[in-house]
Computed example of a mutant assay.
Amino acid sequence: MIPSQFDYQTPATVDEALSLLAASPDTSKLLAGGQSLIPVMKLRMADPEHVIDLGKIDALRGIRQDGDRLVVGALTHHHEIATSPLVARLAPLLGKAAATVADSQVRHRGTIGGALVHADPAGDYPAPILAMEGEMVITGSGGTRTVSAADFFEDFFTTAVGDDEVLTEIRVPTFEGWGAHYEKFTRVAQQWSIVAVAAAVRMDRDRIAEARIGLTNMGPVPVRAAAAEQALTGGTASDVRDALSGVAEGTDPPSDVNGDANYRRHLAEVLARRAVTAAMG
């Protein structure tokens, strides 16, 4: 199928984009990389009258350090994040997750902001950013506000970004010196995650000083495995299996053609052990 007819607009600034949104918030869609929006428009699962392409707003691109935060512009492509030396040093978990997104073509076109606002439970950014306690900067006609990752993802394909707002940047604390790994399970290449686990670990000699764990596709929103993080703290490699035995407790994974909820809970435990072990080095 092809999309319904729509008006196409290309603002050059965030303010201009907000003005266009304000004119018709209920019938407009923002276009970032287009890797999520265009397919659903072709299927007519989305049928906007106005498409506002953010691609000319250079202020929404780039990766920089701001004190103890790594700042990533919402229009930054997955490939840039996956190959950035700054990301690899300050937020290695984010870079490892970006490298697993879809295929090379999508990684060169898709954007982190578009993926986050799309909020697919099987997407590869939400769990790592939740585990890193990241923040989303959202701009609207009323000004700019910052929303924690824990509050940003509200439900299936639903975020805190309003119809008249734009996600402008993502801010995560720096994790320099931490080990990190993103373990993703799919049946075929480039598939959405059936389950994935994001793990970041800070070691003190042979013991885990701190751990962060996020779960992908284990519910309608990403899940932080706080109890497992606590269980890991102070442990060694020999304690990992026992510490992660309850990593899927309290989750609400879907049941579909790729596996039922119990299968996903089992996968989460297996993948968590792999991810944490790899992050420990």
Results as ranks from 00 to 15, higher is better:
Ala180Tyr: 05
Asp7Ala: 12
Glu183Ala: 15
Ser245Val: 02
Val188Gln: 15
Gly123Lys: 05
Ala226Cys: 04
Ala82Asn: 04
Val87Asn: 02
Thr111Gly: 08
Gly234Cys: 11
Arg265Lys: 14
Leu93Glu: 05
Arg145Ile: 11
Asn217Glu: 07
Gly250Arg: 05
Asp260Tyr: 01
Pro3Trp: 14
Val201Cys: 13
Pro39Gln: 10
Ala211Cys: 09
Ala127Tyr: 08
Leu167Lys: 14
Pro121Ser: 05
Ser19Cys: 02
Arg202Gln: 15
Val270Ala: 14
Asp26Thr: 09
Val188Ile: 15
Ile81Cys: 10
Asp53Glu: 07
Ile63Asp: 03
His78Asn: 13
Leu21Glu: 02
Ile63Trp: 00
Gly33Met: 04
Ala180Thr: 07
Arg109Lys: 12
Ser104Thr: 14
Glu133Asn: 15
Val197Asp: 13
His266Leu: 08
Lys56Ile: 00
Leu94Pro: 00
Ala261Thr: 00
Arg202Gly: 01
Phe153Ser: 13
Thr10Pro: 00
Pro128Trp: 13
Arg69Gln: 15
Arg212Phe: 11
Glu183Val: 01
Lys29His: 10
Pro253His: 14
Arg61Ser: 07
Ile63Pro: 06
Arg61Phe: 01
Val40Phe: 02
Ser238Asp: 15
Ala268Glu: 01
Leu18Val: 05
Thr76Leu: 06
Leu70His: 01
His79Lys: 10
Gly214Met: 10
Ala272Gly: 02
Leu70Trp: 00
Gly33Asp: 03
Thr174Asn: 14
His266Cys: 01
Pro11Thr: 04
Glu80Ser: 13
Gly259Cys: 14
Glu154Pro: 00
Pro126Ala: 12
Gly134Val: 11
Ala211Gly: 09
Leu93Gly: 01
Phe157Tyr: 15
Lys184Arg: 11
His108Ser: 08
Gly143Ile: 14
Arg212Gln: 12
Gln230Val: 02
Ala131Ile: 05
Thr139Met: 08
Val221Leu: 05
Asp103Pro: 00
Ile2Cys: 01
Ala199Thr: 09
Arg207Ile: 02
Gln35Met: 13
Ile208Cys: 12
Val195Asn: 11
Val201Lys: 07
Ala237Lys: 12
Pro128Gly: 09
Thr100His: 06
Leu70Ile: 03
Phe153His: 15
Pro92Ser: 10
Val223Asn: 04
Ala119Asp: 00
Val161Lys: 07
Ile129Pro: 07
Val223His: 06
Thr27Leu: 03
Gln35Trp: 00
Gly281Ile: 05
Ile2Ser: 09
Thr83Asn: 12
Thr83Cys: 09
Pro173Thr: 08
Tyr8Ile: 07
Thr146Glu: 13
Val137Asp: 01
Thr158Gly: 09
